[in-house]
Every structure is written in structure tokens, then in C-alpha cells.
Simulated scan of single mutants.
Amino acid sequence: MSNQLAALMVIDMQRGMSDPAIGERNNPDAENNVQSLLIEWRKAGWPVVHVRHISRTPSSPFWPGQPGAEFQPALVPQPKEHVVEKNIPCAFTNSGLERWLHAREIKRLIITGVSTSNSVEATARTAGNLGFDTYLVADATFTFAKQDYAGTQRSAEEVHAMSLANLKGEYATICITEEVLASIKE
């Protein structure tokens, strides 16, 4: 990574995502890795974008005012950090995010959060398509087990690996927390 201005994106790290009822997930240290990146990003004084999913379904744990819609306590945005609210997977759609980034001449995005196979993948694809130099931090993201189209149950690790494969090279560079932290100190 060069010294080009980069924004750290923290996608959907809300209380509802840590509910065990959601099912099997991978990367149990993802939240700690996101927190490590956030701490160093803040020390450097670089821009942070927090993305929050707000559901359109009243029974959802992500409905406004529900505890599940709140940010996880260790990852709450600071007053000067940008917050994007969305109600579909992609953080760019109908949110003003692209304009906000361009106004600050931010051309590089470091993406973390949940879920790799949904909002993270949708946002990374769009970022790449819009021409942003996009990095997805594999160990600072996680997803959940799910059934594939053929009906085969896939583990969270398999779903995560396929999402990373879908993005690698074409939409984003896949990296790990240690690499990003090392680049901050360069």
C-alpha cells in the first residue's frame, strides 16, 4: 500500500451481528482485528467510515431503536467519524458515500466488517467498479454458514473463502490485519 489517503470502512459491526442465534460464523477474532485497525487508524488521524444497516422490516433486530441496530460497544464511532446508514447490502447505493469520499480525495478503501458474503462483498464490488483502490481485510471480516444453490450446507469458512475468491484481483486486494497495521507504520 502506498501513502495515498485511505479510509477505513467498518461495515455493519452492530450488536445484532454478535447474536449466536444467527448461526455458525467464522473468524472469531474479527472484532478484535477491526478494533486494532480502528485504534491505529485513529492514532494516525485518518478517515473512518462506519456503515450501519437499518432494516425496513419492523420485526428485524436491525429495525431503528432495537438493541441489535446499535454499534458494538468497542466499535462505536467517534464524533468526527462518518456514519453511513443503509437498508440494502451495498454501502454506496443511495447513501452519498461515493460523493463523501470524492470530496475528501479518498481513493483507497480498507474494508472490514460483516458479513463477507453479503454487505462486505456488495460494497467491495461497487468500490472496485467505481475505481477505488480497494483492500478487503480477510481476518477482520466474517460471515455465516449457509446452504448453496444446490442445497449443500456450506460452513462459514467455506462461504467466507468463496466471497474472498469472488473479489480477489478483480474488485479488491485481499490482505490481513497484520499487513495493514505494518503499512500504517511505513
Rank of each mutant, 00 (worst) to 15 (best):
P77I: 02
I110S: 00
A161K: 09
L181T: 06
P67Q: 09
E186W: 11
L38Q: 05
Q14R: 06
A145M: 01
I174A: 07
D139Y: 05
A122E: 10
T141S: 10
P73S: 14
K185L: 10
V34D: 01
T126D: 13
S115D: 12
F142K: 10
E186T: 15
P79F: 05
G23D: 03
F92V: 06
V51N: 00
S115V: 14
Y149T: 12
Q153Y: 07
L136V: 15
T57K: 13
L101C: 03
S59H: 11
N129G: 14
L97W: 02
P89Y: 10
I106Q: 06
R56H: 10
A6L: 02
T173E: 07
E157T: 12
A30Y: 05
I110A: 04
A140I: 00
L38D: 05
R125K: 15
N26T: 13
I111T: 04
H50A: 03
G16R: 00
M13D: 11
Q14E: 05
E170F: 13
S119I: 01
V76Y: 09
A21M: 08
F92A: 03
P58V: 07
E98D: 15
Y171N: 06
R42H: 08
I111E: 00
R42G: 04
E186D: 13
H102D: 14
A103V: 02
V159G: 04
M1C: 10
W100Q: 02
I22F: 09
K185H: 15
T152G: 11
A140P: 01
G68S: 06
E121N: 08
L109K: 02
P61L: 05
V48W: 10
S59K: 10
Q153M: 14
S163M: 03
G169E: 08
A127K: 03
R104N: 13
A145G: 00
S163D: 05
S155W: 01
S95F: 09
L97H: 02
H82Y: 15
Q147C: 06
V114A: 13
T116V: 01
R154W: 10
E24Q: 11
V48D: 04
K43A: 14
Q66S: 12
C175V: 15
D29I: 09
A6Q: 12
L97T: 01
T177H: 07
N87R: 12
I22Q: 11
R25A: 15
R108A: 09
A44M: 14
A122L: 07
R104F: 05
E85N: 08
Q14H: 06
H82K: 13
P20Y: 02
N118K: 08
M1Q: 14
L101V: 07
G68W: 05
V84G: 02
A172S: 14
T177Q: 10
T123D: 03
L38G: 04
G16C: 13
T141A: 10
A69H: 13
Y149Q: 14
L130S: 10
A138Q: 08
R125D: 07
A182F: 08
K168I: 00
R125S: 04
V76E: 14
T143C: 08
I111Y: 09
A140W: 02
